[in-house]
């Protein structure tokens, strides 16, 4: 797919997403507000019960900042996981129209996914900036231009890696028709093992070592910890290398599943 076409599709999708104003604000306020309120009450109680200053290396303020950042980064990494994705096209036969168009269906869908990130990016800037102002930068002390520069490629890698895994799950619709439960299972597993549900430092040491070699850490914990200055340059390089290796695995897997799946496709709905 040419860069021009990729940009055209992405901007078209961004315009489409931003045209739903009510959806944007409900998603922003309910998505961020509800999730953050839950975290705030939960950790307030945890810190009160434990009676300690820090849990898993995080003070209460640092924990809140971790969650603010992880909620916003996760929106950018995940994009739109369910609506308008490959499984819907396969199930409803909408894939037919893409298969007769020259170019890559994956490229087309990924461009749409990137375009659909615009509302998430606006929300990240909006809520991240608001938190910075309200908190007086408490908990953001580790953030420097260098950590921001390192976090950006980590977020790009996380987005692509996440998309490839989710794409593969969607493509299983060639056999399973409905992959909703698979996607929900993935979302929970990735959130728990990737650091979106709890910081990975809360896991037992042995588990933490194992997670360093799995793809999940690269999805959420690596970009967030990098941004907050909790990762050394060497650890960041190691994390990125592991993430890139998984990217290759995910790409090969996605390609193989897509090719096998196309042989099964019946184009129902035509």
């Amino acid at each position: 797919m040419s860069p021009g076409l990729f940009l055209h599709v992405a901007t078209m999708e961004a315009r489409r997403r931003m045209s739903y104003r009510v959806d944007f604000w409900i998603n922003a306020i309910a998505g961020f507000g509800a999730e953050f309120a839950l975290v705030w009450f939960l950790w307030k109680a945890m810190f009160a019960m434990s009676g300690t200053e820090a849990i898993g290396g995080y003070t209460f303020d640092q924990m809140l900042v971790y969650y603010v950042v992880v909620i916003l980064v996760a929106k950018v990494v995940r994009g739109v996981e369910f609506e308008g994705q490959a499984s819907e096209d396969i199930y409803q036969g909408g894939l037919n129209r893409y298969l007769v168009l020259p170019g890559s269906y994956f490229g087309f869908k990924y461009a749409q996914s990137i375009g659909s990130l615009l509302p998430a990016l606006v929300q990240a800037v909006l809520f991240g900036g608001l938190w910075l102002v309200l908190s007086g930068r408490t908990g953001f002390e580790g953030v420097t231009p260098a950590t921001v520069a390192m976090a950006i490629p980590a977020i790009v890698l996380a987005n692509l890696l996440h998309y490839l895994f989710v794409w593969t799950l969607h493509v299983i619709a060639f056999w399973a028709d409905n992959v909703w439960s698979l996607l929900v299972a993935w979302r929970h597993a990735a959130a728990l093992l990737g650091g979106a549900m709890i910081p990975l430092t809360l896991f037992p040491t042995g588990m933490q070592s194992t997670l360093e070699w799995l793809p999940f850490r690269a999805l959420f914990a690596l970009p967030v910890e990098t941004l907050l200055g909790r990762v050394t340059f060497e650890a960041w390089v190691d994390g990125m290398l592991v993430g890139c290796a998984w990217l290759v695995v995910a790409a090969l897997l996605a390609r193989a599943v897509w090719r096998r799946g196309c042989l099964q496709y019946s184009g129902i709905g035509i």
Partner: peptide, 13 residues
């Protein structure tokens, strides 16, 4: 009919 068209258009194998 439609299955034949889908094969000729490359949609299905």
């Amino acid at each position: 009919k439609t299955t034949l068209v889908k094969m000729l258009a490359g949609i299905i194998h």
